[in-house]
Write a protein that binds this DNA or RNA. Structure first.
Lengths: 208, 208
DNA sequence: ACCTGAACACCGTTCAAGT
DNA sequence: ACCTGAACACCGTTCAAGT
């Protein structure tokens, strides 16, 4: 019989608990010991479910990816690709996402899943494999880069205001716009640019 | 008199030594204790030069930025901005760059330096402050995102080959192209796209 | 099958003390 | 001014042992 005061444990349950822990206290708060305590078990019991901490991180990233695919796809609308990219951007708003992604995407099952999904969509749109690869590379760079830079542009712009160059009126206005700009609007502008150049007319970019 | 068997210490000398340590052994190898040993001093002496480890990391990122600006600028060629972006991409080839950038760019002096430099260039090209802010956001997203994804695309594509979807001929060709594509050529395609859309004709993207 | 507890080899950091 | 060494409060992980 399972103890009444806690749900039965599994890799998924533990990974989700770890994500919540980070939501509440930040990435560095997550330690095996604290996670164990939070789940009501000895920290070392976690090694029954995971080989090591990296294995846990991989599972966490995979859970984040799950939440994207399940919730966001309005499949068949003809624009699933764009809405998937928007969902990825939103995924990166989770305080764990960026660190998990850069550290573990190469080893988590989430990595292949993302590439295969995107690649398939691009090929369906009629791109050749070579074009699709180049398009994927540019799109993925923009989306992940945009998401990461979201986290610190505002702080950097704030710090830059103290520099002597910021006495210049245009420069200081530039910095203000950097802080106040609507993230979603800017992201859409980027998607727009990518769609225009890559999908309907990739050849002009491809031809070096 | 300074001991003959080592150069006099300073923040700069120590930060450079830390960068070398990472080049040789990877990011996680860098600990205060190992860095101290490597410099021939007690690890705790490092706290005479740095408030804490984050302070050291900030200094390291600033040193990486230094190497970019000094070496790469063919100023006055009319295309300093593009060559600066290329130099940033090359900076990210240093095994410490990505981790330092994402962790510390918000607090290192390198952050403001980069924003001010880029902003000034964009304004000189005749963009309004609002246009320059949007352009900076998109360019910065692409350049940093491209640099980070360079580190793992190939590994992800390799892993994806094992998935059942990769039995499809087009998909497997797509994955091969992803691994074999010339990084520099793809990066140039991205720069090209940004320059075309943002700098000579930003308005069409800006107008939502 | 699932969990515990002691133990090991590390961390970053503080502080009083040395030259 | 520059450096040391002991000490503190942590880490991740292993392993033999318990139920």
């Amino acid at each position: 019989m399972v103890a009444a005061n806690r749900s039965p444990l599994s890799r998924t349950v533990i990974a989700d608990a770890a994500l919540v822990l980070i939501e509440e206290h930040g990435f560095d708060y997550l330690t095996m010991r604290r996670l164990g305590e939070n789940l009501g078990i000895d920290a070392m019991s976690l090694y029954y479910y995971f080989d090591n901490k990296d294995d846990l991180l991989d599972a966490m990233l995979d859970r984040l990816y799950d939440s994207v695919v399940i919730s966001e796809l309005d499949a068949g609308s003809g624009n699933e690709f764009a809405s998937w990219l928007r969902a990825i951007r939103r995924m990166f708003e989770h305080p764990a996402a960026h660190e998990l992604y850069t550290k573990r995407v190469a080893s988590s099952p989430a990595g292949p899943r993302g590439v295969l999904w995107s690649g398939t969509r691009l090929l369906q749109r009629g791109l050749t494999p070579a074009e699709a690869a180049k398009a994927y590379r540019l799109i993925c760079s923009f989306v992940t880069g945009f998401a990461s830079s979201s986290m610190y542009v505002s702080a950097i712009a704030e710090a830059a205001k103290a520099a002597p160059e910021a006495d210049d009126l245009y420069v200081s206005e530039f910095l203000c716009h950097l802080q106040q700009a609507d993230e979603e609007e800017t992201f859409e502008a980027g998607l727009n640019m990518l769609a225009t150049v890559l999908i309907s007319d990739l050849a002009t970019v491809t031809a070096s």
